[in-house]
Design a protein around this nucleic acid. Structure first.
Length: 273
DNA sequence: CAGCAGGGGGCGT
DNA sequence: CGCCCCCTGCTGA
């Protein structure tokens, strides 16, 4: 469990990770333009041998993969197509398992749930989170992972908070974690002003996303920060969690943090999950 | 238009 | 490798 806490931050972006090796990999694949693996038949190149092999399959005329099941003639050009075929046809696993935590609609693939979340509920990716993660819940459904834990130390470092004056960063336990969640929805009173599109389809709009029964928490503060260079916006959510402890009324630790941030905060939003 | 599914690619584990 | 991305064509309300 402790291993899932992210202690390391990429100096070039907002990505965080639990291990130095993860950071090294990230640097190589995310921030290097080196593409040593080149295709002989086209100008495709990539950073990874496995990806090159996958690509080479696309040059073969015959479908490179066949279904192993007896008497099954299904074939496809990608391994993932075969696997999804096998699961659906030969294992009877056709029930949609990806479930929207807002409206409970189910989908067969995470990809399609992603489209749904973005189009129907206006979900976005905060900086440093290039994609959604889906997590299996106790009921077997895959739902959007809303919280990513990072150590308090790292968060303070991210916020350029001087380490002294923190009475709380000393020990890392589950209750002293801060989370970054992957969602922000205007939802309500915002007087926006859609530059483009779009009439409401009938005013229905689930709005308010009151479907908050499952997440066991909590009010989250959102701060949009613009760096000195005016480049990246970081969306921090301070998760007041800890059912056992009273939530520190105004985050004694983040007093300085909030103070520092308020200078650059653009539009704080408060959101429940 | 919403959802499904196949193909192909990126990237974290 | 596995998960998720985009793009795209198909299909059923």
């Amino acid at each position: 469990m402790r291993n899932h806490v992210n202690h390391y931050k990429c100096p070039l972006c907002d990505m965080t990770c639990p291990l130095p090796s993860s950071l090294r990999n990230h640097m190589r694949f995310r921030h290097s333009e080196d593409r040593p693996f080149k295709c002989d038949y086209c100008d495709y190149s990539c950073k990874n041998l496995i990806d090159l092999r996958k690509h080479l399959d696309t040059h073969s005329k015959e479908p490179a993969y066949r279904c192993d099941f007896e008497n099954c003639t299904f074939s496809a050009r990608s391994l993932c197509s075969i696997k999804s075929h096998y699961r659906k046809v030969h294992e009877g696993d056709s029930e949609p398992r990806y479930r929207c935590h807002v409206c409970d609609k189910c989908f067969t693939r995470g990809n399609n749930l992603t489209v749904h979340l973005r189009k129907k509920h206006q979900f976005k990716w905060p900086s440093g989170h290039p994609r959604f993660r889906y997590k299996e819940h106790e009921d077997g459904y895959m739902r959007l992972q809303l919280v990513r834990y990072e150590s308090v130390e790292l968060t303070q470092q991210l916020l350029r908070q001087p380490p002294e004056g923190s009475s709380l960063g000393a020990s890392l336990n589950e209750s002293s974690l801060q989370g970054i969640i992957l969602e922000t929805v205007p939802g309500g009173p915002g007087p926006q002003e859609e530059a483009e599109e779009e009439e409401e389809g009938g005013g229905g709009e689930g709005t308010a996303l009151s479907a908050s029964q499952d997440t066991s928490s909590s009010v989250i503060h959102v701060v949009n920060q613009t760096s000195a260079q005016g480049e990246r916006e970081i969306v921090y959510y301070v998760l007041s969690e800890a059912p056992g402890e009273p939530p520190p009324a105004s985050e004694p630790c983040s007093g300085g943090v909030m103070e520092e941030l308020q200078g650059v905060a653009e539009e704080p939003q408060v959101q429940m999950v």
